[in-house]
């Protein structure tokens, strides 16, 4: 369990808070996603929770243990994968994993099998300095889970990965969740967050703007729109001009408005509808709505 209460952090001590009064919980067997653009304060939170930065204000605990005094032995229960690779470039992937496995006082998974699982079996004996960014990312990820941690910090785990490898990594993250690990996922990839996370929090300028399950947020902040494509009642030159390539007309109908509800009813009774889709808000759209800027900014 990760518990954070009223966390604040000021790098310069001048009242410019990089993290400003944030609170959240990640129970075991849950994936919590931090969504926000660069500089939002996501990494600062992660660094405080792992003890890389001192806890200035508020309280944060990992499995009931305050992060103010994390003893080395406690790191047997923590796994992390940061966005920037921190591996021994002069060592091979296998040597890197064997070295870290040697540091843990708990049983670890077979390094070679882990490398094979993420498609690095063939490069296991290659020095990490020769790895591409995506290969390093995969190696970092398997290093983070090799000791089966109770708490897992993942910072942009999909960064630099091709779609098929990203699928494997996502599956492995779900397996960690299902095993009972509390996972804190930091990303600005809304699709990854949407697919993986049980809960997400939007973060900007050090504050959590909104938090909840992706579905709950979409329902809360999205519009109940229905997008309809339909055949025109009578083909006229004007209708053809506004129709799509297939000669269909399109409409976005807000189900909260009575007149749009009536229009939808009429269209359905006329049997002219070709396609109909509910229009949920994406996490990206919600973030833009909340902040006025994009996640990638």
């Amino acid at each position: 369990m990760i518990t954070v209460e009223h966390l604040r952090h000021d790098y310069e001590g001048k009242g410019n808070y990089a993290v400003d009064d944030i609170s959240f919980q990640v129970p075991p067997g849950h994936i919590f996603g931090f969504l926000g653009p660069s500089g939002a304060g996501k990494s600062t939170v992660q660094n405080i929770l792992t003890g890389l930065l001192p806890l200035q204000e508020g309280e944060a605990t990992l499995a009931g243990q305050t992060v103010r005094r994390l003893r080395p032995v406690f790191f047997n229960r923590i796994g992390y994968s940061f966005e920037h690779p921190n591996l021994f470039g002069k060592l091979t992937a296998l040597e890197n994993l064997r070295f870290y496995a040697g540091l843990f006082a708990v049983p670890t998974l077979d390094p070679f099998q882990l490398l094979e699982r993420v498609g690095l079996g063939g490069s296991a004996h290659k020095r990490v300095a020769q790895y591409s960014k995506g290969m390093k990312q995969r190696l970092l990820f398997v290093r983070s889970i090799m000791h089966r941690p109770d708490i897992l910090f993942l910072d942009e785990p999909e960064s630099g990965l091709d779609p098929s490898t990203a699928l494997v990594i996502k599956q492995m993250i779900r397996e960690e969740r299902d095993r009972g690990a509390a996972v804190l996922l930091t990303t600005h990839n809304m699709y990854a967050a949407d697919e993986l996370c049980d809960q997400v929090a939007f973060m900007d300028h050090g504050r959590i703007l909104a938090a909840g399950s992706p579905r709950q947020l979409k329902l809360q902040y999205g519009e109940s729109l229905v997008r309809v494509e339909y055949r025109p009642a009578a083909p006229t030159s004007a209708a053809t001009a506004t129709a799509g390539a297939a000669g269909l007309e399109r409409a976005s109908l807000d189900l909260a408005r009575p007149e749009d509800q009536a229009s939808l009813n009429r269209l359905m009774q006329s049997a002219r509808i070709e396609t109909i889709h509910s229009s949920e808000a994406s996490l990206e759209a919600i973030f833009i709505k909340l902040t006025g800027r994009s996640l990638s900014q």
Binding site: T50, L52, P72, I78, F82, N86, L87, K90
Partner: peptide, 19 residues
Amino acid sequence: FQEKEEGSLRAYRLSPGGQ
């Protein structure tokens, strides 16, 4: 310095190895 540059020292700090 090599460990600092590679970030492997930072990684070690988050392991049970200890100072």
